Amino acid sequence: MDNFTILTLVTYLYALFLISLRMKVSYKSIKLFKLLVVVLAGASLVFLINYTGNLSLTTRIIVFIPMPYVIVMTYITEIANLLKKMGINGFVKRPVKIDNELAEKLMNSVDFLSKRKIGALITVERNINLTPFINKSLMINADLSKELLTSIFIPSTPLHDGAVIIRGNKILCAKTYYPSTERTDLPMTYGTRHRAAIGISEQSDALTIVVSEETGNVSVTINRQMEYNVSRETLNLYFEKFLQIN
């Protein structure tokens, strides 16, 4: 087996690995794989250009097929941020809409949890699909209500650990786990839930609400940023801006 054949095999296996990993965990946070894809891309180009064997143009194209997918899927966050900085928003969907009744239920749930210092992590899915995290969670798929949402986070219940994901008007799943942010510049007051909330904001455009079990403070995370200890009025402004309440 020559070097070209080995490289082709490794490239395809890596592409299949990314597809599998995408359905399970967040692959974008694995820096080693990002470095590997750069090496694979460069090596593929060199071999395709300089390979002296009897290789037709069609074969060269087929061999190179996995590389665009591997590059885009590995660097999707960086690509999205670059497009945003360039002012290219053609691929960005309009904000998710929720009605006032749903927003009120969510607000009342947060108030209930905050006053009783019950820790919670609540994520509202927006434009970026959270399926890779949902697939590893416990599905609920029930209409959102204050009673159901607050009961999930009661410490004695089996579902309290992890996050809840809300999609549309429903509580889609519970017991969801996010990768913690790798940032080292965060205050010591940020606990595990806060770091997980920042982590998911680094990988999606979701809006995440954190209730601290130590202080009862409510924090909001979106677009890689967290606002700590927000008021009810400020939280409502986040809903209006990012969830387009009507």
Score class of each variant (00 low, 15 high):
F4G: 10
F17Q: 10
S20K: 05
L21P: 02
V25F: 04
S29D: 12
I30T: 12
K34D: 09
L35W: 14
L36S: 05
V38F: 11
L40K: 05
N50G: 09
N50L: 15
Y51S: 05
T52V: 11
L55R: 06
S56F: 09
R60Y: 08
M73Q: 15
T77M: 13
L83I: 01
G87H: 09
G87T: 08
I88A: 09
G90W: 06
F91H: 12
R94S: 15
P95R: 06
K97M: 10
D99Q: 00
E104V: 02
E104I: 07
K105S: 07
K105N: 10
D111P: 06
F112T: 14
K115T: 10
L121G: 09
L130R: 01
T131R: 00
I134E: 11
N135F: 09
N141Q: 13
L144M: 14
S151T: 15
I152S: 08
P155A: 12
D161I: 12
C173Q: 01
C173N: 05
Y178V: 01
Y178L: 03
T192R: 14
R193C: 05
H194R: 06
H194S: 11
R195W: 11
A197W: 04
I200V: 13
A206L: 01
T208E: 04
T215K: 03
G216E: 10
N217M: 02
S219T: 09
T221A: 15
I222H: 09
M226Q: 14
E227F: 03
S231E: 07
T234Q: 13
N236W: 13
L243K: 04
